[in-house]
Design a protein around this nucleic acid. Structure first.
Lengths: 141, 141
DNA sequence: AAGGTTATTGAAAAGAATTATCACTATGTC
DNA sequence: GACATAGTGATAATTCTTTTCAATAACCTT
């Protein structure tokens, strides 16, 4: 073994992708990034864009705006309320927090537009998955 | 003309779907709903589930937890901050609101779990799309 | 600088969730 | 009951994203 295991190499592709990301405030989609990067590296592949956006996000150099899962979830309670999403098991729980309706007016004034609703979501690890992780840790000892 | 135009008919399928939705607090995916509904209506099709979940959401009887668009957006600024999403043009803008980091502790205590981050998003119509709509209204007069 | 290891790439195929299509069915009005 | 058409089941098509795999290139060791 010569190269350090799990090391992240610096590549021209990832560099250009990060430059593109930093050059805009438009919160681009993967495909938009792809088109931009192609201007500088015509042979770059879309797979590389996705791979690196993921890597950059994991490295804390970028933010991904989407749910962990690609599919929608539905709620029979149509009143606005906030959620907690467990990143381990995917469970979604309702939170008993007061809904700050007046925030919508604040934002509506800020952007000089019209706000119809807002969503607040918390991400992390739920109690069950936490104790499960502990149990596994002990096992490994 | 006999039947009222644009009328929404009551169907057994939609009824069962709403019952299933209301019977759980698990924020199910479309596929989970599909499996449940099939127990009562084995011939129901997945397309019907999607159609009705959409209809129910439009009717205000259900809530959909997902972004309008299916694809992710990325941000070169990895600091947590809040967003406004225009439902007309899809544009995403950063909001200059203070990030309430302490909310995460509150929630963490509430659920007895671990919160690593949170997201707050506002949805509506941006200024540009608003004035565009106005212009079009005038045209139609 | 050369050699070796393996992370990363490009190209293309596969995957997963959702939406569209279309002939048929069944709801609601008259 | 008869009509008009919204809704359905079945399936094909889309769309975004991930995976696969042989070839390449980054980085460590010598």
């Amino acid at each position: 073994m010569t190269a350090k295991k799990g090391f992240i190499r610096r590549t021209k592709q990832r560099e250009v992708i990060l430059d593109v990301l930093r050059s805009t405030r438009s919160h681009p989609t993967a495909d938009w990034v792809y088109q931009e990067v192609r201007k500088e590296m015509p042979n770059v592949s879309l797979g590389t864009i996705y791979r690196n956006l993921k890597t950059l996000t994991e490295m804390g150099q970028a933010l991904e705006l989407s749910y962990g899962s690609t599919y929608s979830r539905f709620d029979g309670n149509p009143e606005n309320h906030y959620h907690f999403v467990c990143e381990e098991c995917g469970q979604v729980t309702d939170l008993d927090l007061p809904v700050q309706k007046q925030l919508e007016e604040d934002v509506s004034d800020m952007i000089d537009g019209q706000v119809s609703y807002h969503r607040l979501e918390f991400y992390g690890v739920c109690r069950d998955c936490l104790s499960l992780a502990e149990a596994t840790d002990h096992e490994a000892e």
